[in-house]
């Protein structure tokens, strides 16, 4: 059996500069307005160490276990999704989640959480926050895959200067 690639948003804590761009594009993508309090990702300031936190999309997600109406489920990409029509806004998921990710939307009356930008994924794009992050602190990749890449990553100075300007779809340059 091979590694099924389950891409998640991976955080490189050392790179975050705390600019909150991810929050802006998140609320813009999902709600159509710029409003960090409606963003699914939030930058936490812990003694000036800035940490963007979104849903970890756990494999054994406690929120899914806790939901009394089965509104939370794993989709085929491994993302933890929330079916708004089933959600009754009981807050059980928010209590079960160790990171406190699911939050309550006062307007719709149901919970909301990161869905790894389901609409964008369907188009083959990265989640909006990953695309917008100016410092490269957010990476959209399977965690094991990223570790594999890092193990063999050649440092920049070892580069031989071979250019591949025609892009990632060709070998040549």
């Amino acid at each position: 059996m091979s590694a099924e690639k389950k891409k998640k948003i991976i955080i490189d804590f050392s790179k975050c500069v705390g600019c909150h761009t991810c929050e802006l594009v998140c609320s813009l993508t999902h709600e159509g307005i710029v409003n960090p309090s409606l963003a699914r990702i939030r930058v936490i300031n812990s003694n000036w160490t800035m940490m963007p936190m979104n849903c970890r999309h756990c494999e054994d997600a406690p929120c899914i276990d806790a939901c009394p109406t089965d509104a939370l489920y794993h989709d085929e990409d491994g993302a933890v999704m929330l079916a708004e029509d089933k959600c009754i806004g009981c807050f059980m998921c928010a209590i079960a989640c160790p990171y406190g990710i699911p939050r309550f939307n006062e307007i719709t009356g149901v919970m909301f959480k990161c869905d790894l930008c389901a609409d964008r994924r369907a188009e083959g794009k990265e989640p909006a926050c990953v695309e917008a992050c100016p410092s490269g602190a957010l990476i959209f990749e399977d965690v094991n895959e990223l570790m594999r890449l890092l193990r063999e990553k050649s440092p920049p100075e070892a580069s031989t200067g071979i250019e591949c300007p025609s892009g990632a779809s060709t070998l040549g340059g």
Binding site: R56, C58, D60, P98, Y99, V143
Partner: peptide, 8 residues
């Protein structure tokens, strides 16, 4: 819960 934060 396999949130993989430890890996990160």
């Amino acid at each position: 819960i396999r949130c993989k934060m430890c890996t990160l």
